[in-house]
Simulated scan of single mutants.
Amino acid sequence: MADLSHEHGALTKAFSGLGVDEKALISIVGNWQHDQKHSFRKASPHHFLADERQFEKWNEQQVELIKHEVLRFKSAVVLWTMHPWERDARLFKEALTKGPDGYSLIIEVACTRSSEELLGARKAYHSLFDSSVEEDVASHVHGHERKLLVALVSAYRYEGSRVHDESAKSEAEALHHAIKKNLPVEDEEVVRILSTRSKLHLKAIFSHYKELFGKDLDEEFHGFWSLKVALQCLVIPEVYFSEVLDVALRKGANEFTQEALTRVIVSQADVYMKEIQAVYYKRFGANLSQKIEETCLGNFKDFLLTLVARGD
């Protein structure tokens, strides 16, 4: 007879990260005997509860946890194999169901995609949901961020190499002036600059701001998270994504935060992954692949590591 207490510990370990250690699960559960006297259920009180009618029943919370963790791999594969337009359209839709917690995801998609990619996501959204992402953002987003978010999802930026340096310097000064006001997120000039200027032009503004005022512009927006997220996604996306991954890989992160791990790696595997890995190591003193190895399990872990390796 196998050591059931040992197997209970091994079973718990198989679900003790993000995803499931499928090989361990098969090895343990596949060899269990349905013997009432020496029941594996009796030896696994964390997973099974004694019923008053003298049988052991699954702990419903554990059932839901296992179902969810098994689905992580499937969800990652489905997200990866989607057309990028459909993927982003569905991310927009998901974000709109989260209320204010989803606003940063709307900004992320709107600001880290190219003009053609964002236009494609808007087309896919229209096809999938019979409405425009612009109108849905306008009707679901409330408060100071509405004007900014509608402008960002509506954007179609110039992507050429031309940058008007004097305009960039002038707009750096305009942003500095707006920051001194109470609500720069509602300032029309701030919204115009962030939603219409090319990413190269915004990089020039970022550089001029540092030269003129001695501070990084995104840090100046620290009290206005939507502006900070938008600027980072537009100018330094590798910094933004490294921070999102760090939070997603922390113990105790909520489910929506954990989902960012899959989303970022899937969406950025062929885009900024090399830069993200370098910034992640510099900022957090750890190799991203090693952190995934330590935090995730089974096929889910292997799939994420395969995608990260595409950036090597």
Rank of each mutant, 00 (worst) to 15 (best):
M82I: 05
M82D: 12
P84M: 09
W85T: 09
W85M: 11
E86P: 02
D88W: 02
R90C: 05
K93W: 04
K93L: 04
E94P: 02
E94C: 08
T97C: 03
K98Q: 14
G99C: 04
G99K: 04
S104Y: 02
L105W: 00
I107E: 00
E108M: 10
E108Y: 11
A110Y: 03
E116D: 15
L118W: 01
L119V: 11
G120C: 12
R122Y: 01
K123Q: 12
K123F: 10
Y125H: 07
S127Y: 14
S127K: 15
L128P: 00
S131T: 06
S131M: 05
V133K: 01
E134F: 03
E135H: 11
D136Q: 09
H140Y: 13
H140P: 03
V141K: 02
V141A: 07
G143M: 11
L148M: 10
V150E: 10
A151D: 07
L152S: 02
L152E: 01
R157E: 06
Y158P: 01
E159Y: 11
E159F: 10
G160V: 08
S161F: 10
H164G: 04
D165F: 09
S170R: 12
E171M: 03
A172C: 10
A174R: 06
A174Y: 05
A174N: 07
H177A: 13
A178H: 09
I179T: 01
I179G: 00
K180F: 09
K181H: 09
K181Y: 07
K181P: 01
N182F: 15
N182Y: 14
V185P: 00
E186A: 11
E188M: 11
E189W: 12
R192I: 07
R192H: 15
R197H: 14
R197N: 08
L200A: 03
H201V: 06
L202E: 02
I205T: 07
S207E: 13
H208V: 04
Y209D: 00
F213Q: 08
F213C: 06
K215A: 15
